[in-house]
Design a protein around this nucleic acid. Sequence first.
RNA 1: GUCCCCAUCGUCUAGUGGCCUAGGACACCAGCCUCUCACGUUGGUAACACGGGUUCAAAUCCCGUUGGGGACGCCA
Length: 466
Amino acid sequence: MTVVTRFAPSPTGFLHIGGARTALFNWLFAKHHGGIFHLRIEDTDRARSTEAAIAAILDGLQWLGLDWDGEVVYQFARAPRHAEVVSQLLAAGKAYPCYCSVEELEEMRKAAMVAGKPMKYDGRWRDRDPKDAPAGVKPVIRLKAPQSGETVVADGVQGEVRVGNEQLDDMVLLRSDGNPTYMLSVVVDDHDMGITHVIRGDDHLTNTFRQRQIYDAMGWEAPHFSHIPLIHGPDGAKLSKRHGALGVEAYRDMGYLPEALRNYLLRLGWAHGDDEVISTQQAIDWFDLGGIGRSPSRFDFAKLDNLNGQYMRQSDDADLAAKVAQRLGKEQDPAALALLTRAMSGLKTRAKNLKELAENAAFYVQPRPLALTDKAKAQLDSVEAQVLLPKLVAAYRDETQWQAAKLEERARAFAEAEGLKLGAVAQPLRAALTGSTQSPPIFEVLEIVGRDESLARLADALTPAI
RNA sequence: GUCCCCAUCGUCUAGUGGCCUAGGACACCAGCCUCUCACGUUGGUAACACGGGUUCAAAUCCCGUUGGGGACGCCA
């Protein structure tokens, strides 16, 4: 049997982090089994679905590298098929029209709440003669669900979960405007698409009972379900826009690498022993339902940062330089690109995301005179620096081999002659060359920046501020 | 309110009855490295929610309590 999974987001917003993880798990599970991964856009809510959201979801998945098989399925386009299934259910006496008003429904729920009973529709139209239908009211179609016994779901993560049928009411299959509801559409589409394994958020666990009843009514075999625990914010509460519930494009903008985010998301709720840094191929080889945890997890930027840093350090210098150049608006500048590529090995251990990397790299490609941080300015303005630097510059002017090792040698000899520690010389140098008190090794910077530009920056630093 | 799910360091987790004096990772603290900041490296602080069982033996199984989360729409 070929494994067929799907990711089925509703296009009412961006692709958030929880959805991205659900997509990842489905993708991984399909890949692991040599199966198929489908993408289905659940756009039956015509009022809230938007083109922009669809675009954001597709972009997000592509950025993450989660490619789907075949064409994207748009659920609303299948509405006629959904209605057809409802007709079959109606003809078989397994569904019926209900003429309740929203006000009546609301009253039922309130009454049930105060009576300490489950809030549900009481089934008043279940066996009523359609002749009694109020004039001019378009009915919804409800499933004639079993009223006794229990519905059982064998969940791949949560184990066997069961609920008494008296807890469940006759759910709406078709709205009064003739459009199918989510509950009906998922079942019909999952069945028609041949989905074998449904992996989705825990918030769907209780829906599964209702869906199970539709499968049973149609005489269809239900797929194997796995409900993965939700991701919470750092405070343990439901993920909100304040913390992690950003669209994946926000993570891209913050400078996270897709492979790092994927690795982080994989480890959030899934484990393979003590393994932390897991390549895509290993993830595919190892992914299984048994490794999925049962409790909710919290989103932790600190760990994502660390992982992203590890991935950046492993990244190819030219690739990183290209990404940085783009962020600095220098993607059309071959000289800047070459310089950044050479600088990258010293830069990439000092940033945890591309945004920082670009900020730290900026001094290499910025035109003179360099902007100085307050600390750097204070360092250069000190009497010591103004006395020391000219002497060092004089020594450097004589240096014919503009190489880090040679320049460091000169600086060390100079510091010794002056009775100073190397740091006393290196720091003013750093301030003049980078505009900052923190940077990659300064002699490496000198070499990469080059003789002329280095001496020019030093000259700038020695010119009294205007 | 009714139902469902969950519960190991601050966080992500390993653990599937003896290998647990509870392991790893992130974060944090200290040392080393060092021209700064990082990286790297060495070490440290830190957890089985609570109460009952079952068993020769329980973080692991059962029951209850407490605490978290989710669902209860003509949303998905």
